[in-house]
Simulated scan of single mutants.
Amino acid sequence: MTFEAAIFDLDGTLLNSMNVWEQIDIKFLQKRGLPVPTDYVVEICARSFEEAAQYTIELFGLSETIDDIIKEWNVMAAYEYTNNVKIQSYAMDYLLQLKSRGIKLAVATGLPKELFIPCLKNNSILHLFDVLCSTDEVRHGKECPDVFELAAKRLRVVPERCIVFDDVLPAIKSAKLANMIACGVYDKYSAHNQTEIEEIADSYILNFKQAPFPCKEV
């Protein structure tokens, strides 16, 4: 496997944060007297914040605007991301080893910068990344390759020499559409798609202790 850059999703991939969003989703819907559909978290996790808010409005027939919902989600999540959300097991060591090999690192996330920058700072890994990209900066969420293509462009690395780490099926499909190497990462919220992710991805890991390293020619 040959790559010059590694692009990382955050929620459920580099960050152990999906349980935070489950609790936020539950509280958000309970506040409105609404049940939490079993597939709700899975449905919104690959979408941008704007797309997730629009999906929520349409699903439940809410009267709030997209901006109102995003603001409420951000307020609910801000404290947790700033103080409590941690990186996944073995992730720090893997990032440091990639840096020592001269691999460029990027973030490609559906989170807004107001949430992920404090979180990366709190986990002492913000300085390791050469590029930070959010789906807020592009037209589509990770059901399309936009954010991955943006990361590659900013890194100045051709897509074929980039590896993408992500936990959700739509993102893995998009990484392949962008002609990038795709590595699926296990997360319990995406476990129902594990078989299909493994079929599409170039590799699949349960944790970053199993993550691949580039060939020596890089």
Results as ranks from 00 to 15, higher is better:
111 L>Y: 00
127 H>E: 15
194 Q>N: 00
138 V>E: 12
23 Q>W: 00
13 T>L: 01
185 V>C: 14
107 V>D: 01
49 F>G: 10
100 S>G: 14
77 A>L: 02
149 E>M: 14
93 D>Y: 11
90 Y>N: 15
25 D>Y: 03
170 P>G: 12
214 P>G: 11
218 V>A: 14
96 L>H: 13
14 L>K: 10
14 L>C: 06
104 K>P: 07
51 E>K: 12
47 R>N: 13
62 L>N: 09
97 Q>C: 09
168 V>L: 08
93 D>T: 12
23 Q>G: 00
41 V>W: 00
176 K>Y: 07
93 D>S: 13
200 I>W: 08
36 V>I: 04
65 T>C: 07
209 K>W: 00
103 I>C: 01
60 F>A: 11
125 I>L: 03
18 M>D: 06
127 H>K: 13
177 L>G: 04
175 A>S: 12
31 K>I: 00
53 A>Q: 10
29 L>R: 08
22 E>P: 00
62 L>W: 09
110 G>K: 03
216 K>G: 01
40 Y>V: 02
147 V>T: 12
71 K>F: 04
99 K>Q: 13
67 D>L: 09
165 F>D: 05
65 T>M: 08
77 A>F: 01
86 K>N: 12
18 M>V: 12
66 I>K: 14
141 G>E: 06
12 G>H: 09
75 V>Y: 09
199 E>F: 04
189 Y>D: 03
77 A>Y: 02
110 G>I: 03
211 A>R: 02
69 I>T: 06
165 F>E: 08
126 L>P: 01
138 V>P: 08
110 G>V: 10
201 A>R: 09
72 E>P: 07
191 A>Y: 12
33 G>I: 08
85 V>K: 02
189 Y>L: 11
197 I>F: 08
194 Q>Y: 01
59 L>T: 14
60 F>L: 09
212 P>I: 02
101 R>T: 00
171 A>M: 04
3 F>V: 10
2 T>E: 13
176 K>T: 07
168 V>G: 12
120 L>F: 05
151 A>H: 04
133 C>H: 07
84 N>H: 14
140 H>A: 06
15 L>M: 13
40 Y>L: 15
2 T>D: 14
176 K>E: 11
13 T>Q: 04
40 Y>F: 15
192 H>A: 13
159 P>C: 09
